[in-house]
Simulated scan of single mutants.
Amino acid sequence: MSIKHVFKRTGGWLYLNTALGRGPLRGAGVILMLHRVLSNDRAAELPHRNELCVGPEAFEHLLLWLQRHFDCVPLMTLLLADPEHVPNRPRVALTFDDGWRDNAMNAFPLLRQYQVPASIFLSTDFIGSRQHFWWETLGETLWGSHGQVARHSLIEHLHQVGRPLPVLLDDIDDDRRSLALVHYLQSLKSLDPQVLSDLTESCPHGAQPQALDWSQVRMLEDSGLIRFGPHGASHAILTGLDDQRLHEELSRSRIALENGCAQPLPVYCYPNGDHDARVRQQVAAHGYPFALGTETGLYRHDGDPLNLPRFGVSQRNAHHPELLAWRIRRGTRS
C-alpha cells in the first residue's frame, strides 16, 4: 500500500477513535451509497468495477466496522429524527442504487445476518425485465467476459459511432487495462441514449437478468429490513430531458413503485446524481420531500432536502474502511 494510503488510513482511524476526531460527528448522520455486491472479491477489485462493486468479504467487513462506530438505522429514521434530540452517537444509513439482482443474492444475506437495514433505489423499467445497464454490459463485453467474438463485434460497432477503442485497452496488464476501460466508459456517457441502448442490445446477454424482479422486491420488503424508492424509470439523466419527458420519467417510476411495493420511500434518487433547479422542482411536485444526490457531506437537517449528501462505497474503502472514514472527514459539512 502506498504512503498516501497509509496516511489516509491512519487519519481515518484517528477520526473515529479519538474524542477530538469524533466531535464533528456528534449528532450527525452519514448516508452511504452502494451499487453492487459481487460474489467474488477479486472481481470487484479491478478498477472498472471497484467504484460500483464490492465483494462479499469486503461488504461483511464494512458492516462489522459500521456497527462498531455507528448506529445503523433506516434512511427515514435518519431523515425524520428530531434535530433537537438526536443521539450523540453518529448514525449511518445504507442506500443501494439501480436495483441489481445481486442486492438480493449477495448483499441481503449479510444485511439479514447482521440486522443492518438498507434502502434500495430502483430504476423501475429494468425490474422484472431483461433490460441491461449499458455500463455493465459494454464494460464486461469489452473486458472479454463474453468472449473475443463478442468483444470484436462491439469494437466494430463503437468504431461505426465514432468511438474507436484506445490502444491501452489491449494492454496485457489487467490493472492498466481496467483503468483504461474506466476512462473509456466515462467518455461514452456523452453518447445519445438511443445509441447507448443500441450498443447494449448488440452485446450478449447473460442467462440471469441483471436487475431484481418484483417477487424479489416484495420478499426483501417483507423482511422488514429493506425499503425501496425510485431511481428513475429508464435511468435517463434527468437534466437532459425536456419537461414532458421529465414528467413521464418521474411519473412512470412513481407508479411502478406504488404498484410493486407496500410502502415505497418518499425519497427520489437522481440517476448519476445529476439534478438542477428545474429537476428538483419537478421531483417536489411529484410528491417527494427528499432526494438523494452524490455530493459528499454529513446530514444535519439543515441542508437542501432535495440534495441529500452521500458518501460512495467502493471495494477499496469497504475492505479498508479507514479510507471511508478519511473521506467522511474530508467531506464533512458543518
Rank of each mutant, 00 (worst) to 15 (best):
K8F: 06
G12I: 07
N17V: 00
T18R: 10
A19S: 12
G21R: 08
L25K: 02
L25P: 01
G27D: 02
G27C: 01
G29L: 03
V30C: 01
I31W: 11
M33F: 12
H35M: 11
R36K: 13
L38D: 15
A43F: 14
P56A: 14
A58E: 07
A58G: 06
F59T: 10
E60G: 15
H61Y: 13
L66C: 08
R68P: 02
D71A: 13
T77I: 01
D82F: 07
H85S: 13
N88D: 13
R89S: 00
L94G: 04
G99Q: 05
N106K: 03
N106W: 05
F108K: 02
L110E: 11
R112T: 10
Q115C: 10
I120D: 00
I120P: 01
T124R: 09
T124V: 10
H132E: 15
E136P: 06
T137F: 01
L138R: 00
G139F: 01
S145Y: 06
H152Y: 11
L154M: 09
H159C: 14
G162D: 04
L165P: 05
L168S: 14
L169R: 01
D171H: 08
S178F: 00
A180D: 03
Y184K: 06
Y184D: 02
L185F: 05
L185Q: 10
L191M: 04
L191H: 03
T200S: 08
C203W: 01
Q208F: 09
L212I: 00
S215N: 12
V217T: 00
M219Y: 06
F228L: 01
F228Y: 01
P230A: 12
H235D: 05
G240T: 07
G240Q: 09
G240M: 02
E248C: 12
E249W: 09
S251M: 15
S251V: 13
R252W: 04
I255P: 04
E258V: 03
G260R: 03
Q263F: 11
P266A: 10
R278K: 13
V283Q: 05
A284F: 02
P289C: 00
F290R: 04
T294H: 04
Y299H: 14
D302Y: 07
D304T: 01
D304F: 02
L306S: 00
P309R: 03
P309G: 04
S314D: 09
Q315P: 02
R316Q: 13
R316L: 15
N317Q: 11
L323D: 06
R327Y: 12
R327V: 08
S334A: 13
